[in-house]
Simulated scan of single mutants.
Amino acid sequence: MLAIRFHEYGSARVLRAEEVPVPEPSDDEVLIKVAACGVNRVDILSREGTTPAPVQLPHTPGTEAAGTIAAVGANAGYWRLGQRVVVNPTLSCGRCTACREGRDNVCRSGRIFGVQTTGAYAEYVTAPADQVIALPDAVAFDTAASIAVTGSTAWHMLVTRGQVALGEDVLIVAAGSGIGVLGVQIAKLAGARVIATAGSADKRDRAHQLGADVVIDHTASDWGDQVRRATGGKGADLVFEHVGEATWDQSLRALARNGRLVTCGAHSGAKVTFDLWHLFVKEQKFIGSFAGTRRDLEKVLSLAANGTLKAVVHAKFPLAEAAKAQGALEDRAVFGKVLLASN
């Protein structure tokens, strides 16, 4: 089968299209024929060797896999051949206190599919049978691969952790990103007034079309003040921050008194500063948010099935063009999700 692997860390040039054997599922695994795989920032971090624990080489990335069951392990007979599925990217033990309480995203034995395991930049991939979710008939493979990480993460940030409320002013930073396009929709679904940022006129227009009430150019040096003006000087009640160092200061500038800032990422840099005086005098909250739970993923899949939540696919590349797909993401030339197709 064809798989995309890298044998050393570096730029997209280290990605190689190689013929490798089709993997055999273990007793507790299933083999999935991959129909679509999302391209994610973590794929790039893995390739660069900048994840907290560098991946083992050679490595096949790909965390967002949707396809059909092609083989079933001895202990996985509850799955049938040809069944349409998506992999839950946040692998967990299912036994610890966090897992039993539905907080499986913070399982201490947890792993990220496609980072600590072989991923889905391939024609076939194995996955733990109990970490696979059946796709509703109305959810296409492209949709599932578009929301497996970004949808569950956005829901976890805004609803589970951020507790977005009706009538709040919610700031979605970088609304044109794969996670941002879903953040806009989820915040609107919750009844919030959505203020979005985007770096180009085209992306700002498209953010409006998605439902954002106000869209601001985040290449402007004072965009945090623009958010405050758009809220009558108050600031955003909830800030959806996933960029890191490049947007951190202005995200704080935009945050209201008693406001919450929820963050899930730092691809532009993880070392940031803040003034403790503002934090305690304004009674603000900074909230960490990691990936999403299985429950979060099942919720966004159900919303996609009934048409409430829509995947936004920027482009779909053949598997062999994975380097080009990652390059588009690195160039910030996309609005929505980039996918790979293995057939």
Rank of each mutant, 00 (worst) to 15 (best):
A127G: 02
A187D: 00
A145V: 07
V149M: 15
A145Q: 02
Q131I: 09
V184R: 00
A148S: 10
Q185E: 06
V139R: 07
Q163R: 10
D130L: 13
V184N: 00
D169W: 09
L171Q: 05
A138S: 12
T126G: 12
L158S: 01
V132K: 06
P136K: 13
R161P: 06
A175K: 12
S146F: 04
S177H: 05
L135W: 09
A127T: 02
W155I: 09
S146K: 06
A148C: 10
S146A: 09
A145S: 06
P128C: 10
G176V: 05
L189H: 12
T160Q: 10
L189Y: 10
I186M: 03
D137I: 08
G178E: 03
V132M: 05
G191A: 06
I172K: 04
L189K: 13
V159R: 11
A175W: 11
S152T: 15
Q185C: 12
G191E: 02
A134V: 11
T153Q: 08
D130N: 12
G162Q: 09
P128D: 02
L135Y: 07
A190I: 08
A138I: 11
H156R: 10
I186W: 00
V132N: 02
H156G: 03
M157F: 08
V149H: 12
A192D: 00
S152C: 15
R193S: 06
A145D: 01
A187I: 08
A192V: 04
I147T: 02
G176Q: 07
A192C: 06
A148W: 05
A174S: 15
V184P: 00
I186N: 01
W155P: 06
A154L: 07
T153V: 09
L135N: 03
D142K: 15
V132G: 02
I147H: 04
G180P: 05
A134D: 08
G180Y: 05
V159E: 02
D142M: 14
A187H: 01
D169N: 14
V139D: 02
A144Y: 07
I186K: 01
P136N: 11
P136S: 08
D137K: 14
T150C: 14
A148M: 10
L189G: 08
V159F: 08
L171C: 06
E168C: 07
H156D: 03
A145I: 11
V139Y: 09
T143L: 14
G180T: 08
A145K: 10
A129L: 12
K188F: 04
I147L: 15
K188L: 15
D130T: 12
D142C: 15
I186Y: 00
V139P: 04
V164M: 06
E168P: 05
Q131E: 11
A127P: 01
M157N: 12
